Amino acid sequence: MDISTVRKSFGATEVLKGVSLSVPPGGVTVIVGPSGSGKSTLLRTINHLEKVDGGYITIDGRLVGYQVRGTKLHELREKDILQQRTDIGMVFQNFNLFPHLTALENVAEAPLVALRPGDPRRRTTAEVRARALELLDRVSLKDRADAYPRQLSGGQQQRVAIARALALDPKILLFDEPTSALDPELVNEVLDVIRELATSGTTLIIVTHEMGFARDVADTVVFMDQGQIVESGTPQDIFTNPREERTRSFFSKVIEPAFNI
């Protein structure tokens, strides 16, 4: 996936200021930085939940959200944008589960309604439900398949959300602060699931404030501030020997002394 000079403003506030980033297939890219630096907005442009004001994003060489006509980019029709999103799974901060559906039904919903006839991922209802059970088992929740979101803890709801995002076999999986809405004692159960995914070959892009987790799972760490990428590199590069003073300043305030640079 390639992000090329992406800009995004909300009113007079420029949130993304020409961001460029290449994400290799199968890699784990973790984006860190202070609140308001544009991390979540960048994530939302990847699946066109936010339209870009300039630049473009491609996945496997295909533009996200747009097509070229002549010399200009034109936004795709909504149904085509929705179809593109089946290749880009996303796990939100606040779970976003359907409250009237069970855990199993939440995971099975997208494959049943979002995949067009002819899509090689399309399956029968029985096959989709069987796959949904497999995914719930993968996140250690097969025994709660018939539970409704209100009957699950926050950590369990987020694990269902991860299973749901995997149900379409996406090319890329996005995580937007996946533990920020959880009580501290529930954080690790979600991070453990993501750690397992990080070894599975799925392309992951993760926005997080969990610095120890970022260091453990990332192939590439991206540090953002004020709508720009300040620097990127391996966890060793960024956490142990950052080049930029702004990066050093940030980590000196957010990393515990035993983990300090």
Rank of each mutant, 00 (worst) to 15 (best):
V91K: 10
L136V: 05
K253A: 09
L43W: 03
S20G: 14
G212M: 00
A161M: 07
V217G: 01
N96C: 13
R7H: 14
S200C: 12
N260R: 12
I229P: 11
E256M: 15
I238K: 02
L135K: 14
V160L: 14
Q156Y: 04
S252L: 08
S180L: 01
P257I: 02
E134I: 05
S40F: 13
V207Q: 10
M1A: 06
N96K: 08
S22T: 14
N241V: 05
P120Y: 06
H209D: 07
A114C: 11
F251G: 09
P184N: 02
I261Y: 01
S20H: 11
Q228K: 12
G54C: 07
A198T: 08
G54V: 08
L135F: 04
I205F: 03
K17S: 02
S22E: 13
Q226C: 10
V107Q: 06
A108M: 08
A258Y: 04
K79S: 11
I238V: 02
V193E: 06
E189H: 00
Y148N: 12
L173H: 09
R138M: 12
I59C: 00
V91Y: 12
V190T: 03
E210L: 00
R69F: 11
I3A: 00
H74D: 15
T13N: 02
N241M: 06
Q151T: 13
E14C: 08
G65N: 15
T124G: 15
T29S: 05
L115N: 13
I31M: 08
V91I: 13
A218D: 03
L168T: 10
T13H: 03
H74A: 15
G27T: 06
R85Q: 15
R123K: 13
E105H: 05
S153K: 08
